[in-house]
Simulated assay, not measured.
Amino acid sequence: MGGCQFTRELRLLTPSHFTFVFDDAIPTSSSQFTLLARHNQYNHPRLGITIAKKRVRKAHDRNRLKRILRESFRLHQHQLPNVDIVIIGKSNADKLTNPELFALLDKLWKKLAKRCAV
């Protein structure tokens, strides 16, 4: 599957990357997640994920959410504009099943792409 990977270039890695997005973000939200985006100077979108222990208590639930978020981003990255995205997990995100998460994320990616269109 060429071109559908989640390489290091597609990740927000440092606190300064996250701060860049938080400073002037375009928000999109649901009851389980908030997506913050900001246009970047790269030719591709990048992703950062924060799920607080306070919101999702069990590590295996946080890890499952992160895996699904990364996989959904990997599959939709070519439909997204050149933005840095930070996903913030809210309470009860761990209550959704995997198919429900993918369906919710499909809607959020489309909503975010529409809001960030230049």
Rank of each mutant, 00 (worst) to 15 (best):
F6Q: 05
T97L: 12
Q41E: 15
V86I: 14
D24G: 12
G48H: 02
K114P: 05
L10N: 15
N63G: 08
N92R: 10
S31R: 15
I68F: 01
D84K: 00
L105D: 08
L105T: 01
R67G: 05
V86H: 02
Q5K: 08
A103R: 15
N92A: 13
V56I: 14
T28Q: 13
H39T: 12
L12A: 06
A52G: 13
D94N: 12
R57A: 10
R8H: 08
V83A: 04
D94K: 08
T7P: 07
A103Q: 15
K54N: 09
Q77P: 02
F102H: 13
L108T: 02
N82M: 06
A59M: 05
R55S: 14
L96I: 05
T28V: 13
E100H: 09
E100I: 05
V83I: 14
A59V: 04
N82I: 00
Q32H: 14
S30D: 03
K53P: 03
L36Y: 03
S16T: 12
T14F: 12
W109M: 10
H39K: 14
R62Q: 11
I87D: 04
L13F: 00
F20K: 08
L65W: 03
F22D: 05
K95A: 15
R46Q: 15
S29P: 00
R46A: 10
C116W: 02
F6S: 04
F18T: 11
G3R: 03
R67C: 06
C116P: 06
F73P: 01
A59N: 10
L36P: 04
S30G: 02
K53L: 09
T34P: 00
K114Y: 05
N92M: 09
I26C: 13
C116L: 08
L108F: 00
D23W: 00
L105A: 10
I51G: 10
I88D: 09
R8A: 13
D94R: 05
A25P: 15
L47E: 06
Q79I: 06
G3C: 04
C116G: 10
Q77G: 05
I26N: 11
G48S: 09
R57S: 13
V118L: 06
M1V: 13
V56G: 02
I85T: 10
R62M: 07
F6N: 02
Q79L: 10
D23S: 14
L36D: 01
E71N: 11
L108S: 01
S29H: 11
I49Y: 02
F18V: 08
A103Y: 05
R115W: 09
D84Y: 01
A93D: 06
T50M: 08
K107Q: 14
H44P: 05
I49S: 04
T34M: 07
I68P: 06
N82W: 03
A113E: 02
L47V: 08
K95C: 14
A113N: 10
R115G: 07
G48Y: 04
N40S: 07
L104Y: 04
K90E: 06
I85C: 01
R64F: 00
F20P: 11
W109G: 11
S16C: 11
P27M: 02
P45K: 06
L101D: 09
R115D: 12
I88Y: 08
T7D: 15
R55A: 14
F33C: 05
A113I: 07
R38Y: 01
A103C: 09
R55H: 13
A52H: 03
S91V: 00
P81C: 12
R57L: 10
Q5C: 08
A113G: 12
P99N: 09
L65V: 10
L75M: 11
